[in-house]
């Protein structure tokens, strides 16, 4: 028998993600997949379409809408769900809306907790989902490097880093006690450049914000923000100016820094990603807020 050759690494990562997604569908009662409309979500959705083919993914998508997402992300989200024929659930924390939560008046930390973390818990509880699949990757941030692929959450959705289950081979322990839930990360072993190369190899649609275009920009403390709508509180004399920018990572628009770029094609974005000289979450302002370390957010139930 001829020796089998090793699979190209992207195909190995893909197969591993298929396995994880299928395990979720086989072992849990009511799964859901989080969909933020960013590039990792786009890849995750694509993987789900492939892993279950010819069946549709046997779970709905869930988007936590903070009301401060880029308009293009919302449009992209709705279009992709329609094209793929997958159910889309959208949840916004009603108490947060009532209190007019926004990142300017309430600070990024409190705002994120109410509009993202609390909103997510509400949605999971309301629907009774016992497992939520997310697109987090271990290379994103230091505290993610030790995260499990199948990560247990207590009844209160808390992550207890002191009692994590060891993961041997691909034998994932999926057992839950009443009220416990699981978070599952099929992209655990993917890096930022793997995600882009896969998007290219598979021709996966992503939101146009990742590509350079002229956008209305203001600069504060050396950080570029795109003014996505007229809710952005400008200080007197501050006028958005058109600049060629794009995003490396996408969140709520007032909390996501843009980078100057001329990368208009996927090829150029990949060149820029591979050549770039700062880590990805550098552009997420929430990570630099000293009162909300990423690890603490995770323990509270942030994805």
């Amino acid at each position: 028998m001829p020796r089998l050759k090793e699979l190209p690494y992207l195909r190995q990562l893909e197969a591993e993600s298929f396995y994880i997604l299928r395990e979720v569908a086989a072992e849990f009662r009511k799964p859901v997949m989080l969909f933020s409309a960013g590039k990792d979500s786009a890849v995750l959705l694509h993987l789900a379409l492939k892993a279950f083919y010819p069946e549709k993914p046997p779970f709905p998508l869930l988007h936590i809408d903070t009301t401060w997402k880029f308009r293009e992300m919302i449009a992209f989200r709705d279009r992709r769900a329609r094209e793929c024929g997958v159910d889309l659930l959208v949840h916004t924390n009603p108490e947060g809306v009532e209190r007019g939560m926004n990142p300017f008046d309430h600070g990024s930390s409190l705002y994120t907790r109410v509009m993202k973390t609390d909103a997510l818990k509400q949605a999971l509880d309301a629907h009774g989902f016992d497992v939520a699949v997310g697109g987090a990757r271990r290379d994103e941030e230091k505290s993610r490097a030790k995260e499990r692929v199948f990560s247990l959450r207590s009844q209160a959705h808390r992550w207890d880093p002191k009692s994590q289950r060891p993961e041997f081979w691909h034998l994932f322990n999926t057992r839950l006690r009443a009220g416990e839930t699981m978070r599952v990360f099929p992209l655990s072993n993917w890096t930022e450049s793997d995600v882009w190369l896969y998007i290219q190899a598979e021709n996966i649609p992503v939101v146009p914000l990742y590509f350079a275009a002229e956008r209305p920009v203001i600069e504060r403390d050396g950080v570029l923000f795109v003014v996505d709508d007229d809710r952005y509180p400008l200080v007197p004399g501050e006028v958005p100016v058109p600049r060629r920018v794009r995003f490396r990572t996408l969140g709520c628009y007032p909390l996501t820094a843009a980078v100057e770029s001329n990368a208009e094609t996927l090829e150029q974005v990949i060149q820029e990603t591979i050549a770039v000289d700062s880590s990805e979450r550098h552009g997420r302002l929430i990570d630099h807020d000293p009162t909300s370390s990423f690890e603490r957010m995770k323990q509270d139930g942030y994805f």
Partner: peptide, 28 residues
């Protein structure tokens, strides 16, 4: 040394994963 600090915080890290690539291979 993140690993060391985390050990002191009693976080169970049986393994942390690192990623790098060269022209010929990707490594986990």
């Amino acid at each position: 040394d993140g690993l060391e600090a985390e050990r002191e915080q009693k976080i169970t890290i049986d393994v942390a994963y690192r990623y790098f690539a060269t022209r010929r291979r990707k490594f986990i």
